[in-house]
């Protein structure tokens, strides 16, 4: 029973499954496929997110409730790259009082880019940095300050959560938790905040970001 727990992938399946409006049975089936797959395959040979998406799609077909592949991919993408929830999280701080929505959205992007260690190709032709393009007048120091406050808020929240979580879940996952809190927004905390309604402009700028990275 050495490899009995793989909570990270199955948590991901549950999260994406709920967002895709899967029935419980389909989600459970996807989890079983996932466990079966890693029982015989070496985990380093396969991208975990791809395996999760494959199990979701297969389970949906097996339970006669097919979803479009593109829906699976998009939903999983949004679970992995959450800008929306992060932006919403700013409302749990006093930041919206001192910054314009544009500033705030740019700062969240800045933080997301920092956390995911995405290389952003230099400046545009006139020598402006990317955040200046998105939000004229913003400075790096300003963005860093927002990031610092956000992180402080997450840190605080994380402490509260991890104590309550240990009572309800098996503690298997907890070591990777700190990283998770940054790259995956607030983890479970983000779930309840309705990421569906993420700020449109932030989502769009995030899309642009993604495109310009290619």
């Amino acid at each position: 029973m050495a490899s009995s727990s793989r909570p990270k992938g199955t948590r991901f399946i549950f999260e994406a499954g709920v967002k895709l409006r899967f029935c419980d049975e389909s989600i459970a089936t996807a989890c079983v496929y996932y466990q079966k797959f890693y029982q015989v395959m070496k985990s380093k040979d396969y991208n975990e997110s791809l395996v999760v998406m494959a199990t979701l799609s297969l389970a949906a077909k097996a339970k006669d409730m097919p979803v479009k592949l593109s829906d699976v991919v998009n939903t999983c993408y949004r679970c992995l790259h959450r800008c929306g929830p992060m932006l919403e999280d700013t409302y749990h701080t006093s930041l919206p009082l001192s910054l314009s929505p544009h500033h705030l959205a740019t700062a969240v992007l800045y933080l997301a880019v920092l956390c995911s260690r995405l290389p952003i190709p230099g400046n545009d032709r006139s020598g402006r940095r990317w955040w200046e393009v998105l939000c004229p007048g913003s400075t790096e120091a300003e963005l860093q300050e927002v990031g610092r406050q956000m992180m402080a808020a997450y840190h605080h929240q994380h402490h509260q959560q991890s104590t309550s979580e240990q009572q309800s879940f098996t503690p298997a996952e907890d070591t990777g938790r700190k990283d998770g809190a940054t790259s995956r927004g607030t983890g479970e905390g983000g779930e309840g905040m309705g990421s569906e309604e993420g700020d449109k402009s932030a989502m769009e700028t995030a899309k642009e970001e993604k495109d310009s990275n290619r």
Binding site: S57, L58, K61, A62, D64, P66, K68, L69
Partner: peptide, 14 residues
Amino acid sequence: EKEGFPMTALREIR
């Protein structure tokens, strides 16, 4: 097939 392995075949196998 644009949506991967056809559901009808999956059904048949199951």
